[in-house]
Each structure stands twice: as C-alpha cells, then as structure tokens.
Write a protein that binds this DNA or RNA. Structure first.
Lengths: 355, 355
DNA sequence: GCAGATACTGCAAACGTTTGTACGTCAGCC
DNA sequence: GGCTGACGTACAAACGTTTGCAGTATCTGC
C-alpha cells in the first residue's frame, strides 16, 4: 500500500543513534544502517584487518547497540567450519540406557572446560552401538561437527577403525591396542590392573578377585594385568562380572559374596564406583576393611578420598587426559597427523589396604 | 609411553562397497545418480509422502549405498530449525572454573537421555556470568539452538528474566520465586530445608548448623527453610558458608569444626557432597555419627546410600525433573505457554540421624 | 472423449553468511 | 605527472538445503 517498508533511503542518519527502532537481523540490515556493504560488515565483525580500523569499530559499536549477532548456521555453512566438537558416549555393553558412570561424567566436565577454552562448542550425543558403524557415522557424517571425541570405546574398536578410515578427526578415550587405526588417549589399563593386584599381594592378600564386567576392552585389559600379577605370584584370581548399573550393583555384589568359595581377602575392582558399593556391602556383612578384606578401586574419583576407610585406588589422570584429547583433536583438524597417547596410572595408597 | 601409527594416506580404500565410483556429497549429486531433481531427493529423504513410494525407496537405497547424508548446516539454515537444545551451566558463584558438582552432572546425564529421546541434539556450554546478560545471549542469540535449558540459576535470576523478555524458549532448573518471568523446574527448596531441620530437631539435635554457600538462590532458600524450622522450635541455627570446591572443602570443614562454639549436634548440608565430606572429616576427628553428630544431606545422589553410615538426605527428583524440563522446552518451542513446576522433595531417612 | 481432479516431479527462490576479485582513491617516488 | 603499490570497500558468487508454485502425466467419472 501507501506506506511501503522499503526504507532504503539512508540519507536521514539523524536520530537513530540510541533507539533500535529498526530491527536489524542480518548483515545486510546492519550494513544499511552503517552505510557500507554486507561484506564489509562481515569482515569488520570478524575483526579482520582488511577494513579500516575506524570503520571496524564503528560497525562493532553499531552491532552491539542493535544487539546483532550473525547467524551461526549461515556462517558455518559458508565457511565450512562448525566450531563444534561432537562428544559421544557409547552406551555399548551396559544394558542401562543412561549416562551414569561418574568417571565418564567427570571426563565430560573436563572436556567441556578444555573445549570452551579452545573456542569450541560441545555437542553431546549418547549412542547405542548396534554392530554397524551407523551409530558413529550419524555423527561424523552429519556435517555438524569439526571433529569427534569418543568417551570410551566400549567393544567397538573395529567399528571405530572402520569409520576412521574415511573420517580423520576422531579421538577416543580408552585402551590402546596394537594395530589399531584410531587415535586413543587413555590409561595403561594393563599396568593399572597389575599395580592393583601386586599391591594387594604385597599386603598379604592371597584369595584374589576381580570385580567388573569385561564387556568393554578397558576393563578386560585391567583384568589381564591383574591376572598377570596374580600368576606371577603363583595365585589365582577369580573374575566376578559386576555390571555398572546403580540399582543392580548391590544385589550383584551380595550374590557374589554369597557364593560358596567367595571368601576373598583381596579385591581388585574395575572402578571406584564398584569399590564403593563393595565397601558398603562388606560393611553391612560385618567384614572389617582392610582387616578381613582389602580393596583397591580404579579411577581415583574425587569421592575416593571420602569413603571410610578412604579408598586405595589406581589413579587415572583424567584432567590431563581431557587436555590431551583436545590438543590432539585440534591438531587433527588442522591436518596434522598424530599418535596415540597412553598415560601411566598411579597407585594411590589409602586405607582400604594394609599397605 | 605412547605407541602409535602413522597412517597418513587413506585415499586407497576403493575396495569397500559396491561401487561409489563417483563421489556424492550433495543432494544434487545424488539427484544426478538417481535421475531426478534435487528437490525430489530432499523430499524422498525426508520421507515425505509427496513423492512416489517406489521412487522414495529407490532414492533412500541409493543414499545408503553412497553413504550420503544431507549437510545439516544447510538444512538448518534453510529450515530455520536446528534441532538442537543448548544446555548451559552457569558457573556463577563458584570460584572454581569447572563443572564438577555431581548433582548437575547427573542432571545433565538425564537431560541428555531425555533430549535424545525427543530427537534433539544437545549443545553443552559452560558460562561465566558477568553481570550483563551477555553470557546467556551469546547462546540464545547465536541462532544455533531452538531452545535453552539452564542448569541452575546461580544468582542470575534478574538477568535471566531480562533475556526471557525477548527469548521465549528457555527453561531453568532451580528455585521458583514469586514474580519471576522465566520458567523454572525445581524442588521446593524451602520445604527441603525445613524437612531436614525438623527431622534433626525431632531426633534430638539442639545445636544446629547449616553448611553451604548461599551465593546461589537455591541454597539460600534451603537455609531459609531450615532457619524457619529452627525458629519454630525456639532454636538457633548457625550458617557456615562451605563452598563446593573439591580441594578446599576438607580444610573449610576442618576450620568450621575448629571454631570455638562449633560443637554442633545437628547439621543440615546444602548438598550430599558437603555431607559426605563432613562425614569424612568428623570420622577423622573421632566423632560418632549419629551418636555425637547427626547429618542430613541434600539431593539423594546415588552415592548417598553408599556412605557409612548411609546418608539421611533430602531427595530431589532429578530424573523426573529432567523429563519435565524437556517437556516444557518442547512445548515452549511449539509456541505454547507454560508455567513453572516446583516439585516437593522427600526426606529419605537412613542412618546419619537417630530417626 | 473430455473436463477436471489427482499424483508426482521439476524449477528456482530463498536462508544469511564468507570471501575472491575488481574497483577506486591516495600517497610516494622518480 | 604518471606509474606503482597499498589500502579500503563493493560486488557477486558460492555454501547445500528446503519448499512454494507451476507443470506434466495419469486417472476418474460422465
């Protein structure tokens, strides 16, 4: 009608200094207000030196004033860089459809910190591996992330290798295995298992058990290390596959201790969580710790020092691990090639062993 | 140390599936292969009924065969819908630049589950509030998310209200306050604090303390509830502002107990984490629990049942809370209007009180 | 056999940026 | 004074989708 909204006359730069009377949603809008072209606005906001310093600051001030922020989707589409790292937690061998392991959650927290620091956003996905590479490719192939961080490999090492053959920027937390294609940051789980078992043996334990479900390769490797230590000492170690599901853990443990030849005096656990649960069950059974039974955890969660007695455990350098993962993924994105890093765990002796 | 592999050239993997001889990266590419137009391919992959069922399946098969996935950025740009929910954790009143509270982490885990279920992706941001709305608007205004979930309000209630006045789809976890504009899902913290204190009093405690930093509104409200209960019984409750930083908590607590008139016999804590730490410190000091001192936690983390003695605590329905938050944000995105939901907490009596 | 409905499909215009190239101006230099 | 280069800006072509609209067969009923 009469009142056309083609407000293209930019001669009247009179009163619109303070009031965002006209909505500015796009670069073009802001360009009109500033009396320059959209391209210049784009460069100005990106802080490029190509544009006159004075103009740049004027435009930035204008953007602030109008509360303008460039549309990220458009930006990402055009620049073919998302600034987003996908973090995926494979729910692999755990039945429970839920992210619950405090270790992974803690690692996630650290990753969030490191990624933010590095200027990346973090896109979180939980995935349920199904044998095909699809659960992973749904993320790598989405075009939504510049790279992928995998929190744990579960039992999907082959699948991951397969994906990595055509998708480079991927780093996993977990266990390094010879011949594996994908890059891994993790703890030397075999050494960890060994340290735990050796310590127990040195403290006089003879009837050993390993508590943990070996569906994931990390845990399996820990068992291997523990078993090696046991055998070196001429001892047997019983494997008890406790699963990491909050609700079931108590009953599982009770059943384990009720078994006929279950009078263990030294227990290596696959995680602090299991250790804490075991501690609790043993308390209820009236067993003295470390008098009757000694226990070693794995992870050294912040909580490990709060149990009573405080938990002897194998420490994984989780903050450091997150840092390394982020470093590696960044390098990978830059096109560099990288190698895996396995970090040695440390035995933290507290009071659930007789040291 | 690290073992690794330099597997740099990966171009020669042409032995895989049945003949992706021509690379298909875009809709147009696939359209060419299928002998249709790009638009049709788009519709076919979206499963629209507009395209012939047979054609649709042929195209989908082709897409699978060539491993084609539409570029999300382009899709999101065009359709103006991202399918992403931003989850932001304000690091507000905690000095420590790190996501560490297990409660928030657990809530995050549940949110991840619920959002995935609902078909949304989750973009995680940690933010450091700075008094201006900028830390939040950086996310709401980015055009990258369809909605925002806030894990805790910290002390930013006003700022959040301000943002909500022009950005609708936002739901916060936290404390509901009369007159507040933004939608909140959370626990009745005042009631929680009251339940805890009343229970202690009923169990014979007379020298009460509240352990927790009241920088965040949630905690302040819990203290208010506890104080109300104390006053109703004619008792005084001492506020000890313990901060939630892993490393410092021990020393803080020791200092608190070393204070001249610190012979508390009943402690309400602002979180299970503080309670667990206090339990530990008290153990070390040789105090009997619940004989000498009784303690009530807050949250009912899965770990609360594992302490020794098992922790009496005020339970927040965190899984339920996550579910409600996701429901509300979805409704908000659909354009509906919503109201806050405050859920009643439950007192879980275990063994750190004499019941 | 024909009008009109029906069922698909193609065309092309967005979506809002970024960025290579071209253009214009101005200073410095011989 | 013209040439060279530096500097700053405008122009327009992507980026890869989705989707309204128009077009073309095929079908239906009379």
């Amino acid at each position: 009608m009469g009142a056309g909204m083609e407000d293209s006359d930019l001669g009247n730069d009179d009163t619109d200094t303070s009031g965002p009377d006209v909505e500015v949603r796009t670069l073009a809008d802001l360009a009109r207000v500033a009396g320059v072209s959209a391209g210049t606005v784009s460069r100005a906001l990106a802080g490029k030196s190509l544009v006159n310093a004075e103009t740049r600051e004027r435009i930035q001030a204008l953007a602030r004033q109008y509360g303008f922020r460039p549309n990220q989707m458009a930006s990402k589409l055009r620049s073919r860089r998302t600034g987003v790292i996908g973090v995926v937690i494979p729910l692999g061998h755990e039945k429970r459809q839920q992210i619950s392991d405090p270790f992974f959650l803690t690692l996630l927290g650290h990753l969030a910190d490191q990624l933010t620091e590095a200027g990346y956003d973090l896109m979180l996905s939980r995935a349920i591996p199904d044998g095909t590479p699809d659960w992973l490719e749904r993320i790598t192939g989405s075009g939504m992330v510049d790279g992928v961080l995998l929190i744990g490999q579960s039992d999907q090492s082959e699948v991951i290798d397969q994906v990595v053959s055509h998708y480079r920027p991927l780093v996993a937390w977990g266990n390094h295995r010879e011949g594996q294609k994908h890059i891994v940051v993790g703890t030397d789980n075999e050494l960890g298992g060994r340290l735990a078992a050796e310590h127990l043996i040195a403290c006089g334990a003879r009837r050993l058990a390993f508590f943990g479900d070996t569906g994931g390769i990390e845990i399996a490797t820990r068992l291997r290390g523990a078993r090696a230590a046991a055998e070196a000492a001429g001892l047997h170690i019983t494997h008890v596959p406790i699963k990491l599901a909050d609700a079931e853990m108590g009953p599982q443990l009770e059943a384990a201790f009720a078994a006929p030849d279950a009078d263990y005096d030294g227990i290596v656990t696959a995680s602090d969580l299991i250790a804490m649960s075991a501690l609790h069950v043993l308390h209820e059974m009236g067993r003295k710790i470390p008098g009757d039974v000694q226990i070693v955890g794995f992870d050294d969660l912040p909580l490990a020092r709060l149990t009573s007695p405080p938990l002897t455990t194998v420490r994984q350098e989780i903050g450091q691990g997150a840092k390394v993962m982020v470093e590696k993924i960044r390098a990978l994105i830059e096109g560099e090639t990288r190698i895996s890093k396995v970090m040695p765990p440390t035995l933290i002796v507290r009071e659930t062993t007789r040291s």
